[in-house]
Nucleic acid binder design. Sequence first.
DNA 1: GAAGCTACCAATGTATGCATTGATAAGCGT
DNA 2: ACGCTTATCAATGCATACATTGGTAGCTTC
Lengths: 200, 200
Amino acid sequence: MQALEPELALRLGMSRTPVREALIRLEQEGFVELTPRRGMRVSALSPRDIREITEVLACLEVEAAERLALRRCTADELAQFDAAIAAMDAALEAKDPERWNEADYRFHTLLIESCGNRHLVETAKQYLEKAHRFRALTSVHRAPPVYSNVNHAAVVEAIRRGDPQSAVEIHRAHKRRWLRELDDILRHLQSSDDQAGPHG
Amino acid sequence: MQALEPELALRLGMSRTPVREALIRLEQEGFVELTPRRGMRVSALSPRDIREITEVLACLEVEAAERLALRRCTADELAQFDAAIAAMDAALEAKDPERWNEADYRFHTLLIESCGNRHLVETAKQYLEKAHRFRALTSVHRAPPVYSNVNHAAVVEAIRRGDPQSAVEIHRAHKRRWLRELDDILRHLQSSDDQAGPHG
DNA sequence: GAAGCTACCAATGTATGCATTGATAAGCGT
DNA sequence: ACGCTTATCAATGCATACATTGGTAGCTTC
């Protein structure tokens, strides 16, 4: 999927200038790649990219969880976490991966956004956004994510009782397991559509 | 320090368009703030920003250190680390904070860049860049950073013998200590120039 | 004298035009 | 026929021009 500046401007019914500015922003955020005379394309996420993004996000989320547990969050926040987890449970029961993904996304957004470090929030949200782009891809190849649900619940439990140590440990272990699973999935995808190239 | 688009374009001897594009990039990277009709200013780093940036950077660097220790880096890389630390030691001996900062920056850049996760590299380098903007500020108020040197050396040692556990522990402990010290410095700065506002 | 309204103006956002550049392809030489 | 050279042309980067918007200052009124 390739596109050129003038072409895109035409399609959007605006001049090149605002298109160009938008593309600069998108490039900075890592969503498109601009190659001077070869046009632009939405960044293809190679298996390596997926791995790397997941890793960074994991690291930031663990930090967020720790900070959350340290600062004893409000009852309202905790209720929101509980709600997200309940939604995940329901979706799992109903075997509805669509809804599960949505609830999972909400959970992670909550975790990130309530950590209190605005810079961490901004960065982590960008990574979450990117991670979300291949969630759908992986969810198909994935066993029902029962572990995710119980782990998320356990993390919230640790946060609730203000136990950063446990929050970090649980979330980190969970992410490690997920990374291993991800590697399996990626290997699988890679061998099944070898010359198909990276996934955008 | 305020500036307007046309003014800046005039000063740089170019038209508004490229200036504008550059500003968009800088805004995305968080180096300037654009407020529609009030002009632009280089982002003021409040004490809170400094704290937050340091925290995120710490978290990313710990991850980098772990990955480095896991992957057994080359002799050449290790030599570069050693060189940077030697430079830090020399600068400390010579009581030359300028050179110490430079060597410290080199060390952290090395640590980040050789971690093997390109996304982590990009993100961490942006934070390091920002952190560097207030290094000079803090170094004046800071005791001679002997701990930094021995800690950095210890981290490299752990990396050399492929011991991720220790690398993480050491770096994390060091960062924790540094964050405490930073808080003291920030409190001090805040009380000493109260109405001066944030530091850009 | 102060508060609200209006008119003006400058900065922004967008559009268009021009120069440069490099990619493609046609022509030439071997 | 294959490779190299060169010419063309379109995309990019920059400059300029225009429309819109919001801020400010001056005026009016209470």
